[in-house]
Amino acid sequence: MNARRNRTLFVLVMSAVLLGLSSCFDQPGQVAEENQYPDREPQFPGGPDQLADYLERQMNILSEAHPAGEVKVAFTVNTLGRLDDVRVVDGLSERLNEEAIRLISIMPIWEPGAVEGAAVPMEVVLTVPFRENVVPEGSVFKVVEQMPQFPGGNNQLYKYLAGNFHAPENLEDMGVKGRIYVQFVVTKEGKVSQVEVLRGIDHPEILGGSYGTLDQEAVRVVRSMPLWTPGYQRGEPVNTNLIVPFTISSESKK
Rank of each mutant, 00 (worst) to 15 (best):
A3W: 13
A3V: 10
R4F: 12
R5P: 09
R7E: 15
L9W: 11
F10A: 15
V13R: 14
S15A: 15
V17Y: 13
V17H: 13
V17D: 14
G20D: 15
Q27H: 07
E33G: 07
E34Q: 10
N35K: 09
Q36M: 13
Q36W: 04
Y37V: 11
F44V: 01
G46C: 03
G47P: 08
D49F: 06
L51V: 03
L51N: 02
L51D: 03
M59I: 02
M59G: 02
M59K: 08
M59S: 03
A65S: 14
A65T: 10
V71T: 06
K72V: 01
V77C: 15
V77H: 11
R87W: 12
R87L: 13
S93C: 10
S93G: 13
E94R: 05
E99Q: 04
L103Q: 04
S105P: 02
P108V: 01
W110S: 02
V115E: 05
G117H: 06
G117M: 11
P121R: 07
V124A: 09
F130T: 03
F130S: 05
F130P: 09
N133L: 12
V134F: 14
V135T: 10
E137P: 01
E137G: 08
V140T: 14
V140W: 08
V140I: 14
F141M: 02
K142Q: 06
E145F: 03
P148R: 02
F150K: 04
G152M: 09
G152N: 04
N155H: 10
L157F: 01
A167R: 00
M174R: 12
G175A: 06
G175K: 09
V176H: 03
R179V: 03
Y181S: 11
V182E: 08
F184I: 06
F184V: 01
K188W: 08
K188C: 07
S193D: 11
Q194K: 15
Q194S: 14
E196T: 09
E196C: 07
G200F: 07
I201H: 08
E205D: 14
I206T: 03
T213I: 04
E217A: 05
A218D: 02
V219H: 03
V222K: 00
R223V: 00
M225Q: 09
P226L: 13
T229H: 13
Y232E: 14
Y232R: 08
Q233K: 04
G235I: 00
G235D: 08
P245W: 01
S249Q: 08
